[in-house]
Design a protein around this nucleic acid. Structure first.
Lengths: 192, 192
DNA sequence: CTTCTACTGAAACAGTCGTGTCAGTAGGAG
DNA sequence: CTCCTACTGACACGACTGTTTCAGTAGAAG
């Protein structure tokens, strides 16, 4: 039974939500219990009680961010057909200003999990790559899904989106980045 | 006179080099003076003396990494002509195992500078985007360099490389990632 | 009422952090 | 020799870290 919390308790989810909002604007890198507890009207003691230790809290926050991410890309799974359309759709989704904090958090967790493969961040980067490759695969026509060419295509699509995201987070130049991705969409349409 | 170190002093560069090697395998995120000093056979006192404070050391390490990066992409500036060739060349450069620590450090600094725009990391992400866009521009034919289409093209090329890098660092699957980038190279060749 | 569970406050633990203080030592220049 | 510059060791300061201990309190269940 690897399920420590079958029903996460109302108070726990409430505090997690508040801590998540805090993490979205302050980042996860130098998160420490006392400041976050003070900000959300709690105490380090309570966070320890509910999440076990700091790693537990960070893991919970990472999982919470993942829920946001997966919920927001789920429409792709059902409504979009074709890699080009998926890329275009995700790009406009990435470019929205209000998504910036979530995406910054994502980038932080990704980089951190590369440097420190153990601990709370373990496997974040690899699992998010697989998540997205899976989603993109489900947008491809069936004959493309299993071929090596199809795998390369969705790897390319993902790389473009990820790189565009990094550029966007650094420069905020949505126009230039969107133009670049649309170029990619056109290329994908004509080549595949 | 904004030049604090016209001649960085032999001892300083020696310790910086050792600290750089340490940072390459331990990361910058939770770097602290005492461990790094112990590892390189020095003391926190000396690091403070030579670099002013911890931020000074981190800045020096970031600058040192930038030197590595710029030195290794300089061949592009002179010998490569055409965006597709540049992308292909950089991709094989990224895929080399021995570059992994440097690239991990790069990703870490990039993400950190997004979350914490002040301090030692300030401007790292934006300046590295501009560095690379500049290099890629110098690989484009002259008529492409100034057009909006040309800007979008090199933005796309950079995004693909950056995304491929993230994928590579997370999964280590050089074959899949290289195949994807070569697809992009082909697309760039035929479209532009 | 009692009893149990869920949660909480106050304080302290040992440890690490960046930094400062005070005192040196080694080596070249005069 | 003296003097100066570059560098270094030992140690302590205050702040902050995750974590623990002890002692509760509120509310539902019996």
């Amino acid at each position: 039974m690897p399920a420590p919390e079958p029903t996460p308790s109302a108070r726990k989810t409430e505090l997690l939500e508040a801590a998540y909002a805090y993490a979205l604007e302050h980042g996860l890198a130098d998160l420490s219990l006392r400041p976050v507890a003070a900000a959300i009207g709690s105490s380090p003691r309570v966070l320890m009680f509910l999440f076990g230790n700091k790693d537990g809290l960070v893991k919970a926050l990472l999982a919470r961010a993942r829920v946001d991410e997966l919920a927001l890309i789920e429409p792709l799974h059902s409504s979009i057909t074709g890699l080009p359309e998926a890329v275009s759709h995700v790009c406009t989704w990435l470019a929205a200003e209000e998504r910036r904090p979530l995406l910054r958090l994502w980038a932080e967790a990704y980089a951190r999990s590369l440097v420190e493969p153990d601990g709370a961040w373990a496997g974040f980067a690899e699992s998010t790559v697989n998540d997205w490759l899976g989603v993109l695969a489900s947008c491809q026509p069936e004959r493309e899904r299993t071929t090596a060419h199809g795998l390369a295509l969705r790897t390319l699509a993902l790389a473009t989106l990820r790189g565009a995201l990094l550029d966007l987070l650094a420069t905020g130049d949505a126009a230039r980045v969107t133009a670049a991705v649309e170029l990619q969409v056109a290329a994908l349409r004509s080549q595949c």
